[in-house]
Design a protein around this nucleic acid. Structure first.
Length: 593
RNA sequence: GGUUCCGUAGCUCAGCUGGAUAGAGCAUCUGCCUUCUAAGCAGACGGUCGCGCGUUCGAAUCGCGCCGGAAUCACCA
């Protein structure tokens, strides 16, 4: 496509330079011409000044004029300072367009079953509270990256590990026993995950109350945190659970089941799926025997108190404990075991974790340990480390109820979409169930695009007071552009055949074709950087380009029947890329809105 | 304190393997719906790219040093 043209041009230029100035080893820097200048590709001529012995302008001019004579690809050129801007011939551009037209699902590669699968882990919630905006970012990133990697031809296995075990869930259990009075999702009408979350918050209140009380009795804060009755009872509960105490396990099962059914509803609304769920209650024992193996091979060492460590100071990190002195696991022990287990469970050659950047250190250590244990796949482990979503007031804290709840947010987005469509007078042409469906699609589109258009690495601040936009660089703008084109296609009758020599392309058409042709490169970049925002930015540029074209040129009533037929084809390809690109972001593209 | 990341328009963000006059959206203002969907288009306004020094023909981009913010450095997960 456009990149093959660039490669071709590079070789022509390289030969030309040799002829003009003799042998050299200067890199040819061909880049996309920036929007504000005329042309399609740009050669930066500064590096050649020392061999041309001419001014930047004269050098550009010389190369440009020779290129014009010599290459069928170059139509015109202009030189601005040291930049030689080349405009490609219609011949090149129409060839590119023919190629795009011939390709089904342009940009998306077919699944190559001979390649090993990639595993992507995301979401990984705790079962003591409902999902919030932070999880939404995690889920959307995991889902979108899975789609992007899939569409670059590899099968993807999407997994989550559910943190169903530990003190946190015991806290909810304790509070439910104490204050719950037998309340269930059924009796209360509260969604299961929210109900369990409610008791988690209740525990925290009670915990704080007991701490204060204890301090009043003269205990210091740190001591109080550890010795207050409720925390001791929670720890006892955890031990009971570990020893399989039937009453505790029963309560644990009951409350987790509530949570799962709640999560399921939220995932379904978000359009999130998993191929396999791992449960920490099943995996937390993994890893211990791998530590034993590593001890024998000398990767780990035992301290006098019997705890097991690894020394990573030669890698610029610290010493890290991997087994406590009583032989019990720490967090990283499980992760070592779980990673190894996954490579046994599935035929995968890579494992990507979508986890917040607060765990950067943990993953550096984890990957290093696995590498030292001799697993060659360790080199292909990646951490998609994304920035936190903060509120204007600071971090979200579920214990204090300072969170943007995932379900609430989706409700708000749906009703905002509804208000918007009523305000714009668009709702008349739909019946109730149609507009309800559409409002969901648009509200979710706005939310997903809002999150995914920003670079995952960067933290983002979400202000619940200001609602997410539906105008400008937004999901609904892309959806709208798609709907507009769909409507055009719908209205078009039968089209004539056209030949490229029957008309010339205008500037907007040329640019649209080039933009479309860049879609595959963008997907490739998004896959290798684990960055969906590259797709988002490309779709926005395309939609903006299309709307400019649409405003200025009529499609169905074009100057000639041939032009009309070509423009309709062009519209179809724009719509196809919008549709595919939105799909990669997990956003639906409506045909009407 | 060590390590890592971040600092671009009033706000939210692009641009960062060095390249042109630093781009979008929101907000504010001006135009454009008796021809294909105005959730749109065209334009105006808005910038010491945190600060300084260095490397370079050329620095928002690379290096060093400051300033400001965040995360992490748990026998928590």
């Amino acid at each position: 496509m456009i990149d093959t043209t660039t490669i071709l041009l590079k070789s022509i230029i390289s030969a030309l330079l040799k002829e003009l100035f003799g042998d050299h080893d200067i890199l040819i820097d061909l880049q996309e011409t920036r929007k504000e200048f005329k042309g399609n590709v740009t050669l930066v001529v500064f590096p050649f000044l020392k061999i041309s012995k001419l001014s930047p302008e004269a050098t550009g001019d010389l190369i440009g004029s020779r290129l014009l004579e010599r290459s069928e690809e170059v139509k015109t050129y202009n030189v601005v300072r040291g930049f030689l801007n080349l405009t490609l011939t219609d011949q090149v551009i129409t060839k590119i367009f023919d190629e795009i037209k011939r390709t089904n699902d342009f940009g998306l590669k077919k699944l190559d079953s001979s390649l090993p699968s990639a595993m992507i882990e995301y979401s990984s919630p705790n079962t003591n509270k409902p999902l919030h905006l932070g999880h939404i970012r995690n889920n959307l990133l995991g889902d979108s990256i899975s789609r992007i990697v899939k569409s670059s031809g590899r099968n993807v296995i999407q997994v989550q590990i559910i943190n169903d075990r530990g003190v946190h869930i015991c806290k909810s259990m304790w509070a439910w026993k104490k204050f719950g009075d037998g309340e269930t999702p059924k009796t209360s009408g509260i969604k299961g995950d929210h109900l369990v979350g409610k008791y988690y918050v209740l525990f925290d209140k009670e915990y704080k109350r007991q701490i204060n009380e204890s301090i009043l009795n003269g205990t210091d804060l740190e001591e109080a945190k550890k010795t207050v009755p409720c925390i001791l009872e929670v720890q006892k509960m955890l031990l009971d659970w570990e020893s399989g105490d039937s009453e505790t396990v029963e309560l644990w099962t009951k409350m987790n089941t509530w949570v799962y059914s709640g999560f399921e509803k939220t995932y379904e609304r978000l359009g999130i799926v998993f191929d396999k769920n791992y449960y920490e209650s099943e995996t937390y024992i993994l890893g211990k025997k791998d530590i034993k193996g590593g001890l024998e091979s000398g990767v780990f060492y035992r301290k006098p108190d019997n705890s097991v460590w690894i020394d990573l100071s030669s890698e610029g990190l610290d010493e890290k404990i991997v087994l406590r002195k009583d032989g019990s696991s720490v967090y990283i022990t499980q992760d070592i075991g779980t990673a190894i287990q996954r490579f046994k469970d599935f035929e995968i050659d890579s494992l990507t974790y979508v986890v917040g950047n607060e765990q950067d250190y943990h993953f550096r250590v984890l990957f290093l340990i696995l590498e030292k244990l001799g697993y060659d796949w360790a080199k292909k482990m990646r951490h998609l480390s994304y920035g936190m979503v903060d509120l204007p007031t600071g971090k979200m804290k579920s214990r204090e109820g300072k969170v943007v709840d995932a379900d609430d947010l989706m409700d708000e987005m749906e009703s905002a979409a509804k208000e918007m469509s009523i305000e714009l007078g668009k709702s008349q042409s739909f019946n109730d169930s149609e507009s309800e469906k559409l409002n969901k699609v648009l509200g979710h589109g706005a939310l997903k695009y809002f999150i995914l258009k920003v670079d995952p690495k960067k933290k983002m601040i979400f202000n619940p007071e200001e609602s997410i936009d539906f105008n400008g660089n937004t999901g609904p703008f892309l959806q709208y552009t798609h709907a507009r084109i769909s409507s055009l296609i719908n209205k078009s009758g039968s089209q004539v055949d056209y030949d490229w020599d029957q008309f010339e392309l205008n500037e907007k058409e040329r640019n649209l074709i080039i933009l479309i042709s860049k879609f595959p490169q963008r997907i490739k970049a998004a896959a290798s950087d684990l960055n969906p925002s590259i797709i988002a930015a490309h779709l926005y540029e395309l939609a903006r380009g299309f709307n400019g074209f649409y405003q200025q040129h009529s499609v169905l009533n074009a100057e000639t029947a041939s032009i009309a037929a070509f423009r309709l084809d062009l519209c179809k390809e724009v719509a196809a890329v919008l549709n595919s690109g939105l799909y990669l972001l997990g956003i639906q593209a409506p045909k009407k809105m």
